Amino acid sequence: MEIGGVERSLAALLEHLDYERFDVDLMLYRHQGELMDLIPDRVNLLKEDPAYATFRHSVKDILRSGRFRIAGGRLLARFRGEYVRRRTGITEPGYYQMQLMWKHTLPYLPSLNKRYDIAVSYLWPHDFVAEKVEADLKLAWIHTDYSTIFTDRGLDYERWSRFDRIVAVSEACRDAFLVRYPELASRVGVMENLCSPDSIRKLAAEPVPNPVREDAGFKLVTVGRLSSAKGIDLAVEALRLLRSRGYDDIRWYVVGYGGEEPAIRGLVEQHGLADSFFLLGKQVNPYPYMAACDLYVQPSRYEGKAVAITEAQILGKPVLITRYPTAASQIRNEEDGLIVELSPEGVAEGIERLYRDALLRNRLAENGGLGDHSGSGQLEALYGFLNLEVEAR
């Protein structure tokens, strides 16, 4: 339960389930992460299994623990993934490498010794529930835009075909998935991520840490992993352009962590932006930062359904996002947010426009806050999709 949008949406789903009707077991590969406390008390957290916990360990540590076959599978996946990356030129082989890791380690992982009415796999890849759990009905979630990722189609289809129902977090995610797997159309439905607006507003009221509180400039906030997908490097380049146009009072705060941090810090230093572009790292509670900003910006290259954008709207903030493939399913351009060209120039121009037009910022913020962001009705739709005669709490 590390900090992340999928983890927060899982916590919200668990919070909203009706425990008078469901007995829920939760399987986590590792019992760690800043969001562990968000797991409701009525959820039965299964004991951590050492074999699955290896997914968060280095190969060296796995070898030291004596799990040589799992270590071998990890190494084989890494070498095959690198070979395919070089042969095909794909920029992000992570999804493919993860597929291979599961393929090569699955034979050495234990099954659950219990049969369930429903088994839910909430995060891809879905090998564990597909192969290691017995259930009358199996359900898997789609959180990403399939038009943007590279996977082994045959291996991926084999896993997806083991599920009776598949849930996409947006219409655009469903459509992108079905372009690749049209034969699964009858199994795919849509359920948007759940949020808890009251909890978000309460957390947002907590004191804002430095340096945001004492900064009188025009404040931008982005929440997300420091990864290529989230486009934080585009944000740095956009701020460079804005500075060159004389906007010296803009401050950009990024809440998040990830493998791209060294490269992003290098880019910040290269452009002399250390006094205006701040990487704030992990924050269990990002909402005070959102509440303190003048504009929330999501400069992503691709998204499924970004939870942080909805959270910013809940807090009454104007939102600017890039035109990634599923952007139109997230906001209505010029109505409750602004969609800009996916480039540093596009981001800079959008920020400049909103910087200069307070009336537009206010209109976008007001319209964005009008929607029902709690996801009410989503659980009823899910139950209907599963043909269950149950009601949301």
Rank of each mutant, 00 (worst) to 15 (best):
L10E: 05
L13P: 04
F22L: 15
D23N: 12
D41N: 12
R42S: 13
L45R: 12
L46Q: 11
L46E: 08
P50G: 09
A51Q: 08
F55N: 01
R56K: 12
R64P: 00
A71L: 06
G73T: 08
L75S: 08
L75T: 11
A77S: 13
A77V: 05
R85C: 04
R87D: 05
G94N: 11
Y95I: 01
Y96R: 10
Q97A: 12
M101W: 06
P107S: 09
S111R: 15
D117I: 04
I118T: 10
W124G: 00
F128E: 07
V133Q: 07
A135F: 07
D136T: 07
L139D: 01
L139S: 01
A140P: 04
D145R: 06
T151V: 15
R153Q: 13
E158C: 01
S161I: 01
F163P: 03
R165W: 05
V169C: 12
D175F: 00
F177Y: 15
G189N: 11
C195V: 05
S199F: 03
I200F: 05
K202L: 13
K202S: 13
P209Y: 08
P209A: 11
N210I: 00
N210H: 07
V212Y: 11
A216R: 14
A216I: 06
F218P: 06
K219R: 15
K230F: 09
L241P: 02
Y247M: 12
D248I: 03
D248N: 13
D249P: 07
Y253L: 07
Y253Q: 03
V254H: 10
G266L: 04
L273S: 06
S276V: 09
G281P: 07
G281H: 09
P288S: 10
A291H: 05
V307E: 04
A312V: 05
G316I: 03
P318F: 07
T322C: 13
P325N: 11
P325K: 10
Q330Y: 00
L342W: 00
R356I: 01
L360C: 08
N362R: 14
R363Y: 01
L370V: 00
S374I: 04
N387Q: 14
R393G: 06
